[in-house]
Nucleic acid binder design. Structure first.
Lengths: 364, 364
DNA sequence: TTCTCCATAGTAAACGCTTACTATTTCTAG
DNA sequence: CTAGAAATAGTAAGCGTTTACTATGGAGAA
């Protein structure tokens, strides 16, 4: 009876749903409990028995049913990550970090995308709760809509009540007392540093382009931008700030509009590298030289930054590291509680990387 | 494990692992069956009852346990995708297509990465089998090691026996009779077309750089390359073919070596856009102008291709579409059986996109 | 020799949900 | 009025594992 695995049909078996632990037990002539124990190895099983069991397992091509296992109490060994878009390098690199660290810690990784839809984000958190993931990592800036914050806070509590953890990655806290962990990067500091660099090169009229309005990432970068201006005593000029979106397309089209208006400026701060790429293209199209005529900087230091010509001066964000830390923190035993305590919130630094897209402004 | 509430959390204790359907039933004063039915909506439930149930659901923050649900027979509504690397744009765009189509069809998406390790790939297929995903999509070129093929074929059969489907995306068949579905792109045709384009511009000595040896993608691209050469009666010169890897780094370093050797050629075919980017950098570093001195082409038409200067002439592969089709096919009812039949294998076309990196060779 | 104590193995009770059967009502048609 | 068909609910049998209890030999202790 240990012989015939299953009566496989002509070429490929029909709807049989694969071997169960009971099949293995029968094939090996032991009880299911023994099989379970041999497989998990957390209980003594005689060597001969174990070998017989493993043989049956291979013969039958048995793999445990993860759902039954999860249901019976073992943990799911899965972490969920929610990002905007799988193909956006900013998120892709964070996802890579998450995926790598998760697999290093023996976890699977459930990756989902919101396509920038807040409600979908909320729904995805619930989906992950359904999946009983060990943690859910929420990546990227967040809307500051209070209703949204409240709803997310509820989810954080529900997750915590179920023994899981909500990790905020690169976004602001949901408020004190809400059970989350956080890993962020110094968004404001990077913006300050690169703006200050521009100023140190002699720029005074700097355009800020991109990033959705009412969005935490935009707010921080803009805060750093303004702080640098203030520190050097340069007046803020609202007409120089052009919020909108994070894509390359936005950078391109908005820059064209700006150029059409004939505004007065000597440098442009792209809200991220993609926006900067679009800006560069618009400039190139008009025959404006970078950096001789206009200087341009970006943010994130995504690979494309060094492919652009001129190579883009930008702010480096350790994206992959951010992802890794998120799962480390999530899986660590530290109690979650976003607050002032440093155990459950971690900030990684940013720094500017100087390449070829900035020079002192042209003397008029 | 009902008892497992951790004593760790002073602030928001209320432990317990979340509400179950029984809690909802009790709160609403009905049986669990009724709750289940109200939730799935596949059976009549009186309006008043239903409303009471939904109220309890919200009050308790209940979400179904996906594992219990899966175990009880409902499908898992999950598709798995196995790629090399989340941050590689080639894979990222395919993953985006998969993710979008899956979510359009109400599925979650389990994304995992092999980091180029064959054994890990095999293990990941098993992991997805454990998860009972509705389908597993295997993306990217494959090794042609026969042992590996046999092992993967076994897994395809096991998956089929469990009612799931293995979809091969951009890789060759596992052999006739192995139950898989396939979606591919015209790899060889694209390589032929772009090589022919180079030849039509007057190039005769064309370097081929990149792509792992003994890898299906490399084989197809090289096949197209050779076919174009043959068609125009140009002799194949083995010294012009430099296999190796797919990364940008490989393109850069190998190109430097080639330049050091002072080989004779007028154009370079990068095995993919990333390799081409590396090649471009090596060329730029030596002050060699593209396309005036040397022409360069790539493959895939990943976004970076149009950021490079000169903009890269390359072969467009509809990556996202490939991913979408993979899940469409996977979730369709067509019987899986890779063979000549067209029902279960789909090929999307490729075409060259001409930009600025090619011109006729310099007259000596 | 008899009694304990391990090393092993088996039994059966969850885990949380779906769904085939049943059991009530309430209509509707005859 | 009454039989039969909805419309609604409830009961309970799984689904495939894990794991707390039990059970059974022997080995070593007394």
């Amino acid at each position: 009876m240990t012989e015939k695995s299953s009566p496989t049909d002509p070429l490929h078996a029909r709807g049989g749903s694969g071997a169960t632990i009971a099949d293995v037990a029968q094939a090996a002539g032991v009880s299911v409990a023994t099989v379970s124990r041999a497989l998990s190895g957390n209980y003594p099983v005689a060597k001969a028995t174990r070998e017989r069991i493993f043989r049956s397992v291979t013969d039958l091509g048995y793999v445990a049913n993860a759902h039954a296992r999860a249901l019976a109490g073992a943990t799911t060994r899965t972490v969920g990550i929610i990002i905007n878009d799988v193909a956006d390098p900013f998120f892709a690199y964070i996802a890579r970090g998450v995926e790598r660290q998760a697999s290093a810690e023996g976890r699977m990784c459930l990756i989902t995308a919101t396509h920038g839809d807040k409600d979908r984000e909320l729904a995805l958190v619930d989906l992950m709760r359904e999946q009983r993931t060990d943690a859910v990592i929420l990546v990227g800036g967040a809307s500051d809509d209070p209703r949204y914050r409240k709803q997310m806070a509820d989810r954080a509590r529900a997750l915590a009540a179920a023994g899981s953890t909500l990790v905020l990655c690169g976004r602001p806290s949901l408020g004190t007392g809400v059970p989350t962990k956080m890993v962020t990067y110094d968004n404001e500091g990077g913006a300050f540093a690169i703006t200050d660099y521009l100023i140190s090169q002699g720029h005074r009229r700097i355009l800020y382009v991109g990033g959705p309005r009412d969005f935490s990432t935009t707010a921080s970068r803009l805060a750093g931008f303004y702080r640098a201006l203030d520190a050097r005593g340069i007046e803020r000029d609202p007409s120089l700030v052009h919020e909108g979106a994070f894509g390359r397309g936005f950078g391109y089209s908005r820059m064209r509009e700006i150029l059409d208006q004939g505004m007065d400026f000597t440098a442009v701060f792209g809200a991220n590298d993609l926006v900067a790429a679009g800006i560069l293209e618009a400039l190139e199209e008009r025959g404006i030289r970078v950096p001789q005529d206009i200087s341009v900087v970006g943010y994130d230091d995504v690979p494309v930054a060094s492919e652009l010509r001129p190579r883009l001066t930008t702010v480096r964000v350790p994206l992959e590291e951010l992802g890794r830390e998120a799962v480390r923190l999530a899986l660590s035993q530290s109690p979650h509680d976003a607050g002032a305590s440093s155990d459950n919130t971690l900030t990684v630094g940013t720094h500017i990387v100087i390449r070829d897209s900035v020079s002192p402004p042209k003397k008029p």
